[in-house]
Design a protein around this nucleic acid. Sequence first.
DNA 1: CAAACACATTAGTCAATACTAATATATGAA
DNA 2: TTCATATATTAGTATTGACTAATGTGTTTG
Lengths: 123, 123
Amino acid sequence: MDYLDLKVKFLKGFADRTRLEILESIKDAEKTVLQIVSEIHGNQSNISQHLACLKGCGIVTARQEGKYIYYSLRDEQVRRLLTMFDTVLGDVEQQVASCDKNDQCLCGKSELKCLTKRRIISP
Amino acid sequence: MDYLDLKVKFLKGFADRTRLEILESIKDAEKTVLQIVSEIHGNQSNISQHLACLKGCGIVTARQEGKYIYYSLRDEQVRRLLTMFDTVLGDVEQQVASCDKNDQCLCGKSELKCLTKRRIISP
DNA sequence: CAAACACATTAGTCAATACTAATATATGAA
DNA sequence: TTCATATATTAGTATTGACTAATGTGTTTG
């Protein structure tokens, strides 16, 4: 696994709604799995899997205390990165939101492909 | 599409090897599609699709000049973000690289699931 | 206008990934 | 030791996303 693969892996760690919700939830204080589960919608198995992912990507760390496992952001760098996402998004928001003709790749593709298809069927 | 969806979309824009290669390629100077295609491995269609994605995610911008279209990073913020990825990765590199037991989700899952399955079949 | 070039789009396929449900593991308490 | 609680893991399924090949669009040039 070369550096680029690593970078992709790290970035994919952030690129999911559930994981962003988890990060939001533990941004200011460490939480146990069940605390996270109850704060955001999720089911325990699903959240647990996402936490494993986040940990594997180096985004969060886990600390065991008795039967509880507390998850928190890995470090200040990660926190700063999360903050920076919001900063940059402020700029980009308009443009990204109005991107409603992108198909292919992830940029809202499937949702829009649906629309497209519907339009084809009944124009 | 709410703010979180937007954020996910934006971040997914970065979370792909080919797109990172494209970004690397245009980091310091705008390039045409064919220039990018020849610099990195890719085929024209594929690169074109990734460029559409990057544009739709607000990561790059395009400027037409005659029959050429020049792509470049959207702005300084995006450039700074790219730089920051590398900074943070420096810290995380060791941990992410050694994450070789994560299955599920994206963290290198499939590759490793293979290993796991092979191990199960012939231990 | 026709040919050549630069790029975008479409359709189809395959691989990657998120989710659910069920089960396993580990820890603390009765 | 047994039960309950907290979390992890597995397996299976459905969705999403990347890639290729073919075709379409727009722009310049002869």
